[in-house]
Structure formats: structure tokens, C-alpha cells
């Protein structure tokens, strides 16, 4: 599945799954054009229209946990899950791995 339209994955932009409740915010933009997917289908801007008739792809159904970060080392894309859902995140058809975050001590 190729991205029909280039996604503008700027830091701070919010994306929503078309087939589950998952929402993410972009923490780091990818270098170059990529397709961001969840549950096997391209994500859409939060509040944007979902294509009808799509279903969760079982090979991308491991789930997205709230507060977790996912990072693709190849493109540099980093995402934060702000709403949990059944689908898992992928870039150009390949699952994006969870990023182990080392929490910093709070300084404020």
C-alpha cells in the first residue's frame, strides 16, 4: 500500500487511526516522505475524514498504549500515543518499534 498523498508529519501534528481509537502526536518529523499507518491503514489528521469500509488488519493489531513512544530509526520519525487503540503503528507497511524512554528527573 503506497501513500497516495504525501503526509506532512510536522512535529506537533496530531494523527488519528481510521480503524481504531488510536491517536498520536508527532514528536520528531521523518526525513523525507513516509506513509504513517495504524491498524494497516494510513492515518488521517485528527478530526479529518475516515474512508468508509476499512477494517483493522490483523497483522497490525498489537495495540497502541497511551503515553508510549514509537520511533523509526531509519527515517527519524518519532510518535507519542495520546489515545490508545487496537491497531499498531507502522511506517510504509513496517511496524514502528516501541522506544524505551529513560525518564528525566522532573526539574520544574
Amino acid at each position: 500500500m503506497g501513500a497516495r498523498k504525501e503526509m506532512d508529519l510536522k512535529p506537533g501534528t496530531r494523527w488519528s487511526s481510521q480503524v481504531c481509537d488510536t491517536e498520536v502526536v508527532v514528536v520528531r518529523a521523518p526525513a523525507g516522505a513516509v506513509s504513517l499507518e495504524c491498524g494497516g491503514h494510513p492515518m488521517v489528521p485528527v478530526g479529518g475524514d475516515r474512508s468508509p469500509g476499512l477494517a483493522l488488519d490483523p497483522s497490525f493489531a498489537a495495540g497502541s498504549l497511551i503515553g508510549k513512544r514509537f520511533a523509526d530509526s531509519e527515517s527519524g520519525l518519532e510518535l507519542l500515543v495520546t489515545k490508545p487503540g487496537e491497531g499498531s503503528l507502522a511506517k510504509d507497511g513496517i511496524t514502528i518499534p516501541l522506544k524505551e524512554a529513560k525518564p528525566l528527573p522532573s526539574s520544574d
Partner: peptide, 16 residues
């Protein structure tokens, strides 16, 4: 906006 939000996104765990 991009300055303080970058600090927050990089250093604070969401809902942590």
C-alpha cells in the same frame, strides 16, 4: 510555541 513545547515533549513523560 515550538520552543517550550519542544522542551516538554522531549523531557516529560505524557501522563507520567
Amino acid at each position: 510555541h515550538r520552543h517550550p513545547t519542544s522542551y516538554v515533549l522531549e523531557t516529560v513523560e505524557f501522563m507520567g
